[in-house]
Nucleic acid binder design. Structure first.
Lengths: 221, 221
DNA sequence: AAAAATAATTAGACTAGTCTAAATTATGAG
DNA sequence: CTCATAATTTAGACTAGTCTAATTATTTTT
């Protein structure tokens, strides 16, 4: 079946807007995500429902069907593999890879995807720490938690960021915070959920609730 | 200015259908090339003329403007660089790279193209021996001639093929003929322009006029 | 040079995807 | 529970790109 570029983008958006699988995604969130009108989103959701990619009932929002979930995961796999390629092989910065990968991900070839995966040595994560689904669509479970959810001070390894905007990534780069770094969480402010940490380089950095919520880390044994 | 995917494809087609620059390309050749209707080609040529990419007069066919030529060469550059990537890095066969490159070439990013070029070590030719335009759009002149134009027997280096169809490329692979090989041209048949040659491996191969006309070679000093 | 054949163009319709504006349904505050 | 508001859907229009059918221009033939 033919899946258009726009349809693929909707599928990916539904997948990434639902925090847990089976969560219903509303029309308005999709419209907002694409900077488009609710009427256009309705149109597309009906189209996707016709193709059995989403469960859709009028006024009730959508969830992915099994088939739709599979498709979305494949698109995500392509996106993240291309990000690794752009980052590791072409030396793009982590804040530059997203837009190009957004275009490369739409080349629908299993063969290309699998060969790229092999060429890159089957990477586990993209430059933002997002896990890359394998050939079968399996996604490695991620144990990392947002800094805002950590209650105990100590050493943590930063493994992932969940905001891919240039401004956020540039901010982290300026603060000398990178994926893989081990940082010391020195203070957790109970009042506003901000925190203070010591980076690999030894600098002290204060993070707002907003920033901290987009940085995922796991306890360093 | 926005150039759509379809427009890019037309520009590339016009460029490659004209054997010498400034040669007029007819509506019908374009329509045939895209397996579409003449009416659609007319439509597109008018659109391209509006964008000053082609010189177009009703019933007279088209040629590229300076601006259009520049654009076409850039698309060709992207296409050929991606072919090298697919062939050298992802180990695709030379008959498999064309269709994927056709999609990859439409990603419009100077930065991506130039980084890819650097990553591949500024290749001079794609897997079919077609020269790759440089950053400025300069194309290295190609001294090679079709086997059908060679009048003197002797040793020649095969540098390029001008038919990229799977069937032709597979045929050459079966006959053990590759880009870069030095072959001995043993007989040139004046009657039907067919020829006989000895390959690198020592086999004797007979080539029809049609096949020989798509194989380019240069004299081996 | 006129008639016949071929090639190119126009006119009008269709699809995917988008929009605005109007109508409908859901929600939540009192 | 009902009314106001917010969210969603429908209706109808628009663009890019495509098509068929009809028309017009060019070229070839006689």
């Amino acid at each position: 079946m033919e899946i258009s570029l726009t349809e693929e983008n909707y599928m990916k958006a539904i997948f990434s807007l639902q925090l847990n699988a089976d969560e219903v995604v509303s029309n308005s969130r999709l419209a907002e995500h694409f900077n488009t009108r609710a009427a256009s989103a309705t149109d597309m959701l009906q189209r996707l429902a016709d193709k059995k990619l989403v469960h859709y009932k009028k006024y009730q929002g959508v969830t992915l069907t099994t088939k739709g979930h599979k498709l979305a995961v494949h698109i995500v796999r392509r996106h993240r593999l291309w990000e690794v390629f752009l980052y590791e092989k072409l030396q793009f910065k982590w804040d530059e890879v997203h837009d190009l990968a957004e275009q490369l991900e739409h080349i629908q070839s299993e063969e290309l995807t699998n060969r790229l995966d092999k060429f890159l040595n089957h990477p586990k994560c993209d430059p933002h720490g997002d896990p890359i689904p394998d050939k079968k669509g399996q996604i490695r479970s991620d144990l990392a938690k947002p800094l805002t959810h950590i209650i105990q001070k100590g050493y943590y390894r930063i493994t992932r960021v969940t905001d891919h905007s240039k401004s956020f990534l540039n901010y982290l780069t300026e603060q000398n915070i990178c994926i893989g770094d081990v940082v010391k969480l020195e203070e957790i402010n109970a009042y506003d959920a901000s925190c203070k940490l010591k980076t690999t380089g030894g600098q002290i950095v204060f993070l707002s609730q907003k920033a901290a919520s987009h940085i995922l880390a796991e306890f360093k044994k």
